[in-house]
């Protein structure tokens, strides 16, 4: 378990993390979402003690903190962060990297071959990493952390440069790790994917972590609360406003209009469907606000 206690990080006069207080539990997949430069990596660096916070501390398993060098070594035995693909050793093979990580964290060597197979890396893993494409390097970095097999795994932009197939493969592996009781913290811009697999998702706002459920009640619950309409005419919007004044409308920069329903009553849903069809609106879907929508809403990308 990670207990983040009043963490503040300031660079000069700029406060990147502002008095953050939160707990993450084992067996949880945590998603961190924010525009670039708003503190995701900083938070991970604080958790790894790569960066010392201006105030506050991080507790692991109730009592272990970065109070000494020896504690740092103890913590790093069960906390790891995915390496950056640009930091790989170009003259060493992928397999050598995997062996290195398995050896440093004393994990089961069988994991190496299992991970290679799971990630379809067999055809290139014995070649030098200098010959790899971005996607291949990214998969290797992910594999390195998987073979380290620590209880807490942090990944910054793990899906970068990956094709949809590999995104799915990695997601499945992450779910498996979560099922094994690992805590996985992911910072990502692949919002659909994150929404699909993360247990809790946090946005960053002025240095604070904000749970998506606090922004929109029941965000993580599968209830029909919204109708998402693409390219809705202003005249239809006006008509809707007149006919259904309790329905709140929001139009995002993506030309997506969200119709927030006051309830999920069958009659209301049926009436609305009829209304939209009558007004020649065909491209709409019932559901809930997606993380993409939320991201646009929260970071003020609203028309």
């Amino acid at each position: 378990m990670i207990d983040i206690q009043n963490i503040t990080v300031q660079f000069g006069t700029r406060t990147v993390l502002n008095d953050i207080e939160i707990k993450f539990n084992q067996g949880e997949m945590i998603g961190l979402v924010a525009p670039n430069g708003t503190g995701k990596s900083t938070l991970m660096n604080v958790i790894m003690n790569y960066l010392q916070p201006t105030r506050g501390k991080v507790l692991f398993n109730g009592n272990l903190s970065y109070s000494s060098k020896s504690n740092e070594v103890k913590i790093h035995q069960f906390v790891s962060m995915m390496p950056d693909q640009s930091d790989l050793y170009n003259h060493l093979s992928g397999r050598t990297h995997l062996k290195m990580y398995a050896a440093m964290w004393k994990s089961d060597p069988k994991l190496i071959d299992e991970t290679i197979e799971a990630l379809n890396m067999g055809h290139y893993v014995n070649k030098k990493t200098g010959t790899y494409s971005l996607g291949m390097r990214q998969r290797l970095c992910f594999a390195m952390q998987i073979v380290a097999n620590t209880d807490i795994m942090m990944m910054d932009e793990v899906m970068n440069g990956l094709d949809p197939n590999n995104v799915e493969i990695i997601s499945k592996i992450l779910l498996k790790k979560k099922a094994e009781g690992k805590m996985i913290i992911i910072a990502s811009h692949l919002l659909d994917n994150l929404e699909k697999y993360a247990d809790r998702i946090f946005l960053f706002n002025e240095g604070k972590l904000v749970n998506t459920n606090e922004i929109i009640e029941g965000f993580s619950q599968a209830k029909i609360k919204t109708i998402r309409v693409k390219n809705m005419d202003d005249s239809v919007k006006e008509l809707l406003k007149t006919k259904y004044p309790l329905i709140k409308q929001q139009t995002l920069v993506t030309e997506m209009t969200l119709l927030h329903l006051p309830s999920s009553e069958q009659q209301l849903l049926s009436d609305l469907t009829a209304f939209l069809v009558e007004n020649n609106v065909m491209d709409f879907a019932f559901g809930k606000v997606t993380l993409n929508d939320l991201y646009a809403l929260y970071y003020h990308e609203v028309v």
Binding site: M48, Y50, K69, S70, E72, V73, K74, H76, Q77, V79, S80, M81, M82, P83, D84, D87, L88, Y89, H97, M104, W105, M144
Partner: peptide
């Protein structure tokens, strides 16, 4: 320094 993120997290003391 050319491989910071690969090496920094190793569970081994600097000394």
């Amino acid at each position: 320094r050319r491989h910071p993120s690969v090496l920094k997290g190793f569970p081994i003391a600097d000394w």
